[in-house]
């Protein structure tokens, strides 16, 4: 997967083209980070799969905490006391961050190459790290909201997931989604030095992550609702759909294809939930 993604290294005003394509792999650290995140999250999933029901402790008799995968297997997490939605969000954040790195950071690899190419070598590490922190930070803020929201929803998990998938499918067909996906490929100018350089990286991270959140929020909302025991299925599947449209030759066609796939998934899950 990484090979395919990094074939789209960029260096210009658009993030998919190698105007000045480096032959080396300045983003190898981030590729390894993504790989580690996948290993970790899948390990948590497997470790937590033995428990029945949501892989995280309930916040109450009728209000399960956000079902982040394998959270029961995370040190300290099993001792989490029932509490508010905010409490639930805080508890789920570490897992969410790992999941965001695994699922969403691959889509930002071309942006990281842009940052690398347009930074002095001595600044590259700092600049790329700064971009990645901002990017994941934005996703984390979204995650906190999503986890808090899911903590106050009191319906069957399958129904939640099915409705979220249906919402994601519908979102795929909107103009807002199409524009957001296009904006994921925007770059911004990066001043070469000083505070302007730092500010440029932060701005780029905000622009890129903002577009990414606008494009993929229903999919990640679905991930916040998926039971831990099913993470091994949903995480790769939804990641594949996100990456497919992000790196598609024909994004409009890809978004429609992804919408169809999400619709099929939504119908299947809702059928299970309602039967």
């Amino acid at each position: 997967m990484m090979t395919g993604l990094t074939a789209t290294l960029s260096g210009g005003a658009v993030l998919h083209r190698p105007a000045l394509r480096p032959r080396g792999r300045p983003i190898v650290t981030f590729e390894l980070l993504i790989a580690a995140a996948w290993i970790l999250v899948l390990w948590w999933t497997v470790a937590g799969a033995g428990s029945s029901g949501p892989a995280v402790p309930s916040t109450g008799a009728t209000a399960p905490m956000p079902s982040m995968p394998g959270m029961a297997a995370m040190p300290g997490m099993t001792a989490a006391a029932p509490g508010s939605a905010a409490h639930a969000a805080v508890l789920g954040i570490p897992m969410w961050v790992v999941m965001a790195v695994a699922m969403m950071l691959p889509g930002a690899l071309p942006a990281l190459v842009h940052v690398s190419t347009h930074s002095f070598r001595r600044r590259r590490g700092r600049a790329m790290t700064g971009f990645a922190l901002v990017y994941i930070g934005v996703w984390t803020m979204f995650g906190a909201v999503a986890l808090a929201l899911t903590a106050v929803i009191h319906v069957a998990a399958e129904l939640e997931v099915g409705l979220a998938l249906a919402l994601a499918a519908a979102w795929q067909l909107t103009v807002l989604k199409r524009h957001a996906l296009r904006d994921c490929h925007l770059s911004v100018r990066l001043p070469p030095r000083g505070w302007a350089a730092h500010a440029g990286v932060v701005r780029f991270g905000l622009v890129n992550a903002g577009a990414c959140v606008r494009s993929c929020w229903p999919v990640m909302l679905t991930m916040a609702l998926v039971p831990g025991s099913q993470m091994w299925l949903w995480m790769p599947a939804l990641s594949g759909l996100v990456w497919a449209e992000r790196f598609a030759r024909r994004p409009r066609r890809a978004t429609r294809t992804v919408a169809a796939a999400l619709t099929v998934a939504a119908v299947a899950v809702l059928a299970v939930a309602l039967v």
Binding site: H16, R17, A19, R249
Partner: peptide, 14 residues
């Protein structure tokens, strides 16, 4: 120009 790695677009460098 190019190579055009991933996207099939009208205006984007190089």
């Amino acid at each position: 120009g190019g190579p055009t790695a991933a996207l099939f677009q009208h205006f984007q460098g190089p």
